[in-house]
Design a protein around this nucleic acid. Structure first.
Lengths: 220, 220
DNA sequence: TCAAAAATAGAGAGATAACTCTATTATTCT
DNA sequence: AGAATAATAGAGTTATCTCTCTATTTTTGA
């Protein structure tokens, strides 16, 4: 009796997923057909459905894989010595310059807004990224690199939003000056994250209570 | 000889566009079929194609209309007395709370990354929004409300990115604490935009040259 | 009033999509 | 070695999609 070889099987799945990845980048989740994927993977439809039960299953596995590798990439930020510079680096290569693969992130977002199954996947990976950020923000706060009055989870969400927003920049503005954009993003992040240097903790606390940019959410 | 009534004709087009809008929100540009749109507009396919030459023409007209109204909404920010508060307001109602219609923005972005025709439309409207922002940033800078060392166009692009990023927030994090998120967005924008208050212009200039968050792009 | 053209309906053509079914080849366990 | 089963191929089914074509009703200008 022959048994399925899990290594070969997994490898084949990965090959198909790679081909699907290329197709989806080019034409989107709905635009790319199973025929396209079969052609890219150089297999027959029968073969494709031997490995995946449906096109949706392919999309899900691919998004899962894609987000996983994105999260892995993302984890490197936490390991870097300068948090903000690492973020800027991530924005430069992950969002502003390397446009192609990032389109899928937008597709996944749009799909997640409609398809609950998808929403679960996107949510799961956002949660992983957020947790990584929260940990590091906490550490950086204790080290005095980040304003200790910022809520780590809320700040992490803001940073994720900035990353998403940066992805849209070259699409909205194809003539974007990347260097200048990076410089301003650096300013944005520095000013947001760094503790107000020139004031003592006491003065800071009083000033904040007056201008109340942070307390608004805590007033309840 | 009968002549086409431009008012009635335009109204009918608008009705169809409204119906298409609802369909596209629910199922996306590719997910919604012309049959769906016909059903929603209560017309026959023959009728539909009497007003639009193709589905793509419908999508384009709709995105154009949608972005136009978005830009109009956006123009109100410039008219508001407090720029940052107006922005926060826009983020709250335009991005964080009113999720449904905003999905189309993601769809349009994803489509623009692939379809040049679409890219042109998205680009055009981004340009309108950017110009509005640039004007107002310039005014606010002269009034001392915004750091005069920020480049208006680059800053406008950053703000557009923040708006886009905020749209992704409730999708990435369905349990998002909106109040807290708004508070942190307010901090982000305040710290980024407001001129460093406590320092004199001279000291500021020297400090900046040392830390050089802004000069990076100008060094060439 | 009535003819010309616009507005509208709806059947259906033609293309393509996802997926299935059967057949063939390759591999492995006993 | 050979039976059992995995891997693979590809034709074909069914559904659906966009769009067309013809026919009918409504409106309007002279």
């Amino acid at each position: 009796m022959r048994k399925v070889d899990p290594v070969k099987h997994e490898q084949k799945r990965r090959d198909i997923l790679d081909a699907a990845f290329r197709c989806f980048i080019k034409d989107g989740f709905h635009g790319a057909s199973t025929t396209d994927i079969c052609a890219a993977a150089k297999i027959s439809p029968g073969h494709l459905y031997h490995y995946f039960s449906s096109k949706e299953a392919i999309v899900e596995a691919m998004v899962d894989m894609g987000l996983e590798s994105a999260a892995r990439e993302f984890g490197k930020i936490s390991a870097a010595p300068d948090f903000i510079e690492a973020l800027i680096d991530y924005l430069e290569h992950g969002s502003l310059r390397h446009r192609t693969a990032q389109v899928l992130s937008l597709d996944a977002l749009a799909e997640a807004a409609r398809n609950p199954q998808f929403a679960g996947i996107v949510e799961k990976h956002a949660s992983v990224s957020r947790n990584l950020l929260v940990d590091f923000i906490g550490t950086a706060q204790r080290q005095g690199q980040i304003d200790p009055d910022l809520d780590p989870a809320a700040t992490a969400n803001i940073l994720l939003a900035v990353i998403d927003g940066a992805r849209a920049m070259p699409i909205r503005t194809p003539t974007l000056d990347i260097e200048q954009s990076l410089a301003h993003l650096r300013t944005l992040l520095s000013r947001f994250l760094k503790p107000p240097r020139e004031m003592s903790a006491h003065i800071r606390r009083v000033t904040r209570r007056t201008n109340a940019p942070l307390n608004a959410s805590r007033k309840k």
